[in-house]
Nucleic acid binder design. Sequence first.
DNA 1: TTGAAAGCGCTAACAC
DNA 2: GTGTTAGCGCTTTCAA
Lengths: 338, 338
Amino acid sequence: MAVTIKDIAKKVGKSTTTVSRALHDHDDISPETKELVRKAAAELGYRPSILAQRLQKQRSDTIGFILPPFGPRYFDPFISEFLAGIGNTAARNGLDLLVSTHPPGESEMNAYREKVHSRLVDGLIIVRTRLKDPRIDFLLEENFPFVSFGRVENQQDFMLVDEDGELGMRLLVEHLLSLNHRRIAVIAPPTNLTFTLHRLKGIREKLNEARLELDDDLVVHGDLTNRSGYEMASELLRRSQPPTAIVACNDLMAFGAMSAAQEQGFVIGRDISITGFDDIPMAEHSHPPLTTVHQPIYQIGARLCDMLINTIRGIPVKERVVLLRPELIIRQSCGAVP
Amino acid sequence: MAVTIKDIAKKVGKSTTTVSRALHDHDDISPETKELVRKAAAELGYRPSILAQRLQKQRSDTIGFILPPFGPRYFDPFISEFLAGIGNTAARNGLDLLVSTHPPGESEMNAYREKVHSRLVDGLIIVRTRLKDPRIDFLLEENFPFVSFGRVENQQDFMLVDEDGELGMRLLVEHLLSLNHRRIAVIAPPTNLTFTLHRLKGIREKLNEARLELDDDLVVHGDLTNRSGYEMASELLRRSQPPTAIVACNDLMAFGAMSAAQEQGFVIGRDISITGFDDIPMAEHSHPPLTTVHQPIYQIGARLCDMLINTIRGIPVKERVVLLRPELIIRQSCGAVP
DNA sequence: TTGAAAGCGCTAACAC
DNA sequence: GTGTTAGCGCTTTCAA
């Protein structure tokens, strides 16, 4: 059906070897032959069978990405940008991107095992790391190329990019302290996620430095969705002693919190201050615009992908652990306590 | 390096043919041999080379999805859910999902041509169709299996799922009319997208039925982002005769519009009514919660993927054009005009 | 019930 | 410069 090098070989009266080498521009083929072969290939509409090349080369030229959906509706504002970051980088390097979805849990490791053993991908990209992350343990053990967006607790001899969430929170809390906030509540993400640890640590330590304590009663946990931000904030604000500021650990929960506050008649930035983390595009256009910490998701994806590609190609990566310096974005969702 | 059927064959003292057939449970192999082969395979830790199987079978067992990013920041709340829908469905059927990103424009068609000709995917999923869509013309011409989320203007002999945007808008406008709105503005998406046409048509015709006209001066175009919703609404609301209702053609722009309105001191649901379209999870938790039209993105993705898989497998698809009935979600962003 | 041989499309070592 | 041969790992006639 499809045109193969055999067809070209027949047409130009040469061997398939010669054709193959001509097409790859090897320098042991005469210019005339090359020309001849190229023309024939073009005329016949030849397209190499990538599959055959891959089988022969024993490389898949493909990067795998298993996205762990969160919550019931799979809504994740990160994904599109992150995907673009890795997708574009992979494409620029002639690699394909194989994507699948698999929630954390029971069968998760099967999904990873299968990807690794099928030899359908040359490397994997991990996101949303947990404190103890079986995916990373497994890949390390298998000695399979991978990079990770996020750290884990016990291991660190692998390539990763992460934002310095601790510093990000320090900047944020510093800002809140300068506005005289003392009763600061936190809507934290699930505790098994690594970045939760860092963010809480940043908050706690910055407060301690100001001789303040993070009140455990004011730390609640959400699941990173709008809804949970809404629910947690609703509860916090109905207390007899509501906080003057709510630090939500991601923008989505911050939006939920803003909605809850407004519903209860609070004016955000005056009666209550609310902060987010991530700086998704929407943060700029919420009402009021959200004070948050910027994460360059696209760049993180691109950088990770670059590291992985180099590794796959055997090029040593100098910086194996990249910790990005976060940027505080001050908008109007925080105001001074009288 | 990796274990192959050859190794198994050697171990059990049979031919590779027998091993292959035993592993696939053909019924011309004795139970004993099957047992023997299976045990040997397990012991050696055999994993089939999917690549080799695919080369031999001349099928890639892979579905392709090229996502057309919008705007500078690739932010698209749809993607994660849509991806989950197609990813899970593909996985359930043993197919892989190959994802790449490519913006509309110049080289877009090359990306599609390459996917088709590389024979790396058995079918493609198209999203965000344009009125005249070269991707669809091309795939139709190539007779390559594909399905589309969205219609096009001139062609309709291909499989697609779409929401009935016209009806959705009719429901929405009906709601606004019942609240006595007469000066209704529209923030429309780019005119080259097919769904823009349907949504505008729904608005226009419903108004006509009520003996009203859609004032062209009140129709502005955004690019589906928050920011553009914000900018367009800012301008609309600063006019001497501002509208009493703004129909944004997607939720993201509606949020931007809400932000602009609030910034100018409007109370949403009282001074100005704003509607969206899509019902992304955030719509429920904005302030005020957004009146919008629901699109079951996950299900659309899953359905599309199912159709495509059937086609690839040669199973005829009975319903080739699926138009989903939209659901109006009334929340608090709209109120009655005094 | 099993095996030999051919082939999917391509590349590479080695000879000429 | 070019061709022969072998092989990537697997499946599938066809014959035994």
